[in-house]
Amino acid sequence: MTLALDRYKTAAIFQRCLIRITLRQQLPGLITLAALWLLPFLTVLYWLRWTEYPLTQISPDAYGGSSYSSYWAAHWNHVGDFDSVLYGLVALTSVACLLLLIPATNLIRRDLLVRLNVVLWTQGASAAQWLLAKVAVLGAFVVVCFGTTGVLDWSLLHWAASRHLLVDDRHNALLMQGIGPSLVAAALMYVCVGALFAVIPGDRINRSFCRLGLLFLLLGLDSLAKELFSGTGGMRRTLITHRISGVNRSKSVLTGVNPVDYWLHQLLNCTYDLAIAAGALLLALHLLRRRTVPTHASSGQGRAADGRALASGGWDLRRWASLIRPGETR
C-alpha cells in the first residue's frame, strides 16, 4: 500500500476546505436568504419602473422647473409614495440587519448541536478556524447582499434628491445609515454578534437571558452612539434641504447630501460597527477556547491554570493568533 501524501501547507487562518464545507452545508439556507433579499429588492425596482407615472414625469423637471406650486398640487401623492418607498426600503434594510442575528446564530449553533464540530476539530481544523470559516461565509454573503442594497438606496436617494422627490420629514440618521458602507459594517456586526450568541455556554434558559441582555445592551449602545454621531454639531446638515415657498404646506425638500459630512458620518458609523464586530468575534473565540483545548503549550492543564496563564499573559495578540492555528503536525 502506498502512502499518498498531500503537499504540506502551512497552517492558515482561513482554511479553504472549511469554507467549502460550510458553503455545501448551508447552500439551501443561503439560497433562501438570497431569495428573501432579492424579493424586496426586485419589488422596489419593479415599482420604480412600472408605477402609474414613470418617475421622470412626476419630477419637477417635467414642468421645466417653472411652477412648483402646480407640480406639488398635481403630484403630491406620488412624491409621498416615493418618499415612503425609499424610507421604507432603508427601514427594511435596517431590520434585515438585525434579523441577521438569527441565521448567524443558527449557522454555528447547528454544528454544535449535531456535534459536527467535533469531527472537524479532530481533523486538523482548530475551533477558531471553524468559527472564522462560518463567519466568513455568511460575512461574504452579507457584503454582497447588503452592499448592493446600500448602492440601490444610495442611487435612489441621489436621483430623487436631484429631482426634489423627497420630503425631509424623517430622521436623517436612519437614511444616512442605510445608503453607504456603514450598512455593510452594521450587517457584519450583527453576523459577529450572532456568532457570539451561538457559543454562549450554559443551559437554554441562561443562554436566552444572556442573549437578550447582550442584545439590549447592544441596541442601547448603538442608539447612543448613533445619536452622538449624528445629533451634535453639523452632522444633521448632512442631508441638504431647502424650503420651497409657494409649495403646499411649505415643505422642506431634500436637494442633496453634503459629501464631507456624509463620509465623516460613514467613517464614524463603520468604525463603531466594526469595533463591536471585532469585539464580539474575539469574545466568541475566547468562549470557544474555554470549552476546548487550545493548541498552545499551556493547554491540557485545566481551565483554572489556563485562566491564570491568560491573566498573566494579558491581551497579547500573538496569544490570540495562536488560538487560530491548528495543533502541531508530525
Binding site: 479532530t122 503549550a297 491540557g300 491548528p326
Partner: peptide
C-alpha cells in the same frame, strides 16, 4: 505533550 499540541496524531 499537552492534548492540544498533538491533535494531528490523534483520531
Amino acid at each position: 505533550k499537552p492534548v492540544g499540541a498533538t491533535r494531528a496524531r490523534v483520531g
